[in-house]
């Protein structure tokens, strides 16, 4: 009985959370590409103008960033100016939630068939490394270790970005604690 009443609220909250996390990540991707050399070096190998999308199937939340050249990303929000070149697609909102609430590593989600790549796999490999790097920026070390395969030794954090993002993280952690079955 209780479950029946709570379930829809959980679904709604989960969608909202994924939505917000995509926005956080989109902005953070842009910000990190402006300050972090490692991310810039990874991104430089991508074609200029490449549109990258992360989305939830079938028509769920999405985030779109563009490689505007020289290793810089620009966040486009939810809509792309033209058809995207590389898309990472979660099969279900529940799977996006697992990854975006740092309960499952991005690489693990690939390994577990939670998501698909549409586009050049070598670009997807690069974007996964960028996302890993991003997660180590946003997350406190303890949680980041869960979210990425390896925690890098050489992090020089742009404090402003981190503190902003960590506010969301707090929301995330509370949320996970509340709804974890």
């Amino acid at each position: 009985m209780l479950l029946k009443r709570i379930q829809p609220m959980v679904f709604q909250a989960r969608r909202l959370y994924v939505d917000i996390m995509f926005q956080v990540m989109g902005r953070a991707l842009q910000a990190v590409s402006e300050v972090d050399e490692t991310v810039q070096n990874e991104a430089r190998a991508l074609p200029k103008g490449l549109l990258f999308e992360m989305m939830v199937m079938p028509e769920g939340p999405r985030l779109i960033v563009e490689h505007i050249g020289d290793g810089y990303f620009h966040y486009h929000g939810q809509s792309a100016p033209r058809p995207v070149d590389l898309s990472i697609q979660f099969k279900h909102i529940a799977h996006a939630f697992l990854v975006l609430s740092f309960q499952e590593k991005t690489s693990e989600a690939f390994a577990n068939d939670r998501m698909l790549v549409d586009g050049d796999v070598s670009y997807a490999v690069r974007m996964t490394r960028v996302l890993n790097r991003l997660e180590t920026f946003i997350l406190p070390k303890l949680i980041a270790q869960r979210a990425v395969k390896e925690y890098p030794a050489n992090l020089h954090l742009p404090e402003k970005l981190i503190s902003a993002a960590r506010i969301y993280l707090k929301v995330a952690t509370n949320f996970v604690e509340t709804v974890r079955p």
Binding site: A45, S107, F110, A111, V121, S122, A124, V125, R126, T128, R129, N132, V148, K149, E150
Partner: peptide, 13 residues
């Protein structure tokens, strides 16, 4: 090798 798809599933980054 760093651009190869299978590197994603290697247990170490």
């Amino acid at each position: 090798a760093l651009d190869d798809g299978s590197i994603m599933f290697n247990p170490k980054e």
